[in-house]
Nucleic acid binder design. Structure first.
Lengths: 348, 348
DNA sequence: GTGAAAGCGCTAACAC
DNA sequence: GTGTTAGCGCTTTCAC
């Protein structure tokens, strides 16, 4: 069942059917009615595929994330997906499990599939192959929008959070609670969020005349296991910190794992403030003070940016003159885990 | 840059280029080399779109899930996505936020987009419109595979878990710990998992000569807030249970929320066994005994089933003679929360 | 072993 | 207002 069949049964030409379908051009009300009736009767559904090929644009965008199971990314996907379905886009999902090679593979497949656009959270900030492929995509007219993580000097549109301010707030909160020895389980310096959150940490210290101690800053690589190891390193120092600031949800979990295994009680033995909330914890003894941000909205905004670029491209051609970078604000939810340890010997 | 350009530069015909591209038919080694060289030089990438239109099949499958942010679904998506990317499929992601109308909308859009197949976790088991649309998809040659939740009498392929056995094991564990008054926060009876898990609960009771009490079975609808309310109902009974079995991860959270708010301590005041693990809790005071299942693998298997159906369709035509339903096993992880309350007055 | 040509299902100039 | 026609970029039969 195609547009010709419908045209024939309705006694009109395919172009008229097309006009009706797209609600474009002038069609007499009566013929429109008739065509619509036939379409209904025959249960005809036009092929999006053929339309895309013909019109040269496509209403799917691809979303590439490093870790599908991380709730942070699920929330972003949710935001993207909901906005997309409202505006009539489909979302192609790809995960790379944080492996650069898989990122390259996916990018290659996208070069073939030619989606309408790409929203991406790159595995690494510096990656020659990824850079090349992203550039190729853009040059093929496929807009690229970044979320959360930045990508080297490529001047790409993107949605980011105020990582610096967030971390600064989080650490300041610990300082105000009386802490002077504050460790940080950071993210990779090769990522924007990792870097900015470190800077926020350092700045907060400086602003309160607390000396930055090299050994208090360890890299958890945004992963649970690595952060667990980082935490171990931190707590085995001869003069361990009384508080820890974790750079993301996974780092927080790694930290909690270590504490659990070593019988360290929150507040009693160690204070903790994390970046990004972990909602499941709110019903437990781990009442975490956290830096929050509107994650769902980051996805939503990324999709909005994408639509805008798609629209601009259609209306103004390829001559994009501006790069849009959106920042979302961070907040602080204080639940008590920042308190100064009341201590009972042990590590303190 | 299209296949004609390449053909011209290579001094051959488009069909030869096509043959080279698809590694099909006989092409002289030397011309093949030449064509390949030009392709490389020109950085040519064939359009999957055009190919799909021409050949009438497509290597994307759609995945429709009711709640993108629920870790259960993320894990399934992860399994699907990883298998898909290995076998060269793309995954279209759609969420419905548990709203039947959105499910209908998505299904409509799929009818237009004609994906290669559909893997779906339906919102409701009985839904006339969804049933119709799924049937239409199948009749259009688009295979449908279910995951986790079943769909009325439609004889569709699917991957499910041994919900009955899982629940039975979970409840039996509570009974063995000494409980006789066991409540359940169940899922909707209109869903297979909801029904089966209830049956498992009832069976476990019967097998241990414990009378089933109507008031101990409340519906939490697989959602946190509803389960919270259900829990409230349960605990406000004049003779409240000493243990609760929750039908899914959200029900467990609702239950924990109530406990937190009402200062009920796990084990001390109430025992709890849940269906599906909540990994974040393992580093807290909530050491939950849970029924587990290989969720990632459920997604993986669903995709495998899908590929098989796609292959059968291609090789044998539409005459599918069997319906394949895969069951994954459930396990029990005992962590202590099933223990008989040592009590100190209060609710007990 | 290779090429010519029709066709997948739709859209968009252009003509009437 | 409506129809004719030539694509979109690929595959595939059928000749040669």
């Amino acid at each position: 069942m195609n547009i010709y069949d419908i045209a024939e049964k309705a006694g009109v030409s395919p172009s008229t059917v097309s006009r009706v379908l797209n609600d474009r051009g002038n069609v007499k009300e009566s013929t429109k009615k008739k065509v619509l009736r036939i379409i209904e009767e025959e249960n005809y559904i036009p092929s999006a595929l053929a339309r895309n090929l013909s019109v040269g644009e496509c209403r799917n965008i691809a979303f590439l994330a490093p870790d599908i199971e991380n709730p942070f990314f699920s929330k972003i996907l949710h935001g993207i997906s909901n906005r997309a379905s409202q505006t009539g886009y489909g979302v192609f999902m790809f995960g790379t499990d944080e492996e650069p090679e898989r990122e390259h593979q996916v990018l290659d497949s996208l070069l073939r599939d030619k989606p309408g656009g790409l929203i991406v959270i790159p595995v690494q900030e510096h990656d020659r192959l990824t850079a090349e492929k992203l550039k190729t995509l853009e040059s093929e007219g496929i807009p690229v929008v970044l979320v959360d993580r930045d990508f080297q000097d490529a001047s790409l549109d993107g949605v980011f959070s105020e990582d610096f301010q967030g971390a600064r707030k989080g650490v300041a909160c610990l300082i105000q609670a009386g802490h002077k020895k504050i460790g940080m389980i950071g993210g990779p310096v090769t990522s924007r969020p990792g870097r900015e959150r470190r800077k926020g940490y350092e700045t907060a210290l400086r602003e309160h005349d607390i000396r930055f101690r090299e050994e208090y800053m360890v890299d958890g690589n945004f992963m649970e296991e690595t952060s667990y190891q980082a935490m171990k390193k931190l707590m085995e120092l001869t003069d361990p910190p009384t508080a820890v600031f974790t750079a993301n949800n996974m780092a927080t979990l790694g930290c909690l794992k270590y504490m659990k295994e070593n019988d360290l009680k929150l507040v009693r033995d160690l204070a903790l403030v994390g970046f990004d909330d972990i909602p499941e914890l709110q019903y437990t003894d781990i009442q975490l003070t956290v830096v929050t941000r509107p994650i769902y909205d980051m996805g939503w905004e990324a999709m909005r940016l994408m639509e805008q670029r798609l629209k601009d491209k259609k209306e103004l051609g390829e001559n994009r003159k501006v790069v849009q970078r959106i920042m979302v604000r961070t907040g602080l939810v204080v639940r008590g885990s920042e308190a100064y340890p009341i201590g009972e010997g042990g590590t303190l």
